[in-house]
Amino acid sequence: MSRIEVLKTYKIFIGGQFPRTESGRYYTPLDSNGKALANICLSSRKDVRNAVVAARKAFGPWSERSAFNRGQILYRIAEMLEGRQAQFVDELMRQGSSKVAATNEVNLSIDRIVYYAGWCDKYNQVVSSVNPVSSSHFNFSSLEPMGVVGVVAEQSTSLIGLVSHILPAICGGNSTVVLASEKLPLCAVTFSEVIHSSDVPAGVINILTGSPEEMAATLASHMDVNALITSNLESQLSNKLSLLSVDNLKRKFDYEVNWVEKDKQALHYISDLQEIKTTWHPIENVGGASSSY
C-alpha cells in the first residue's frame, strides 16, 4: 500500500506566529489545470491591523540591531531558503511554472537575499554625508528606516516579487506587513516558515494571504504605517491607495519592474525606504592652536 501524503495547512504569519485568519474565512485558488491548490486564509482587515501592531512593536528593536547583525540574519534567510529549494520549486510548478522557470526563480530569490544581506552594513556609508557647514559645528546626515512598511506584493509572481519587496525594506531596519499574491499564495506561506527559522525577530515580517483589493485600503489608510510599496499594480487601485496614503503622509512607491530580471536589485530600493536625518553638534573653538605643524 502506498503511503498517504501529509498535506500542509497554509496559514498566515503575524508576530512570529502562524494563526489562521481571525475571520475564519478561506479561499481556494486553482492551479493551471483547474484543480484546487489548497485552502488559503482569506485574511481580513482586522488581520491587517493586528499585523501592523506586531510590526510596530518589532520595529524599534529591529532598527536598533547592529547593521552587521541584520546582515547575518538576512544571510541566514538565504541559507534556509537554499535548504528548502526543492519545496519552493515544487510549489512554483504546482502554481503553473515550468521546471526551468521555477528553478531560476528560486535561485534568483536566494541570490537576491544574499545581495541585500551584504548591503545591511554598507548602504549608510554610501549614502550618508558629512556636511561642511560654515559655522563651528560637526554636521552629518545619515539614513534611518521609515518604520512600518506596508507591501502589496507583486501579484504575478509567487516568490521573487515578495523577496524583492521585503528584503530591501528589512535590510534597512524597517518592519513589514505584506499582502501576498492572491492567485499564487503558496510560496508566501512557505517563505514565512523560512523566515520563522532564520532568526528574524517576530513581527519584523508579517505575511497575509487573501485579497489585496480588500485589505490594501486598510494598509494604505492605517495611521501607524509609514510607507507603502506596490508594484505593477493596475492604476485604479494604485491611485485609490495613493489617495488613502495622504492622511498620514505615507511615503508611497509604485514600482514598474519585472522582478524576474537579474539586475532588478539595487541600493535605491533600500534608500527609498529611508529617512535622512541631519545632526548638528557644536565644535569647541578656543585658543590659538592650529592643526598645522
Binding site: 554625508s129 556636511n131 561642511p132 557647514v133 560654515s134 559655522s135 559645528h137 554636521n139 546626515s141 535622512i276 536625518k277 541631519t278 545632526t279 548638528w280 553638534h281 557644536p282
Partner: peptide, 15 residues
C-alpha cells in the same frame, strides 16, 4: 534635524 546644544542652525550644505 537634530540640534545638539544649539537650535535653529541652517546651512546650504545641510539637508
Amino acid at each position: 534635524v537634530i540640534w545638539a546644544n544649539c537650535y535653529n542652525k541652517f546651512d546650504p550644505t545641510s539637508p
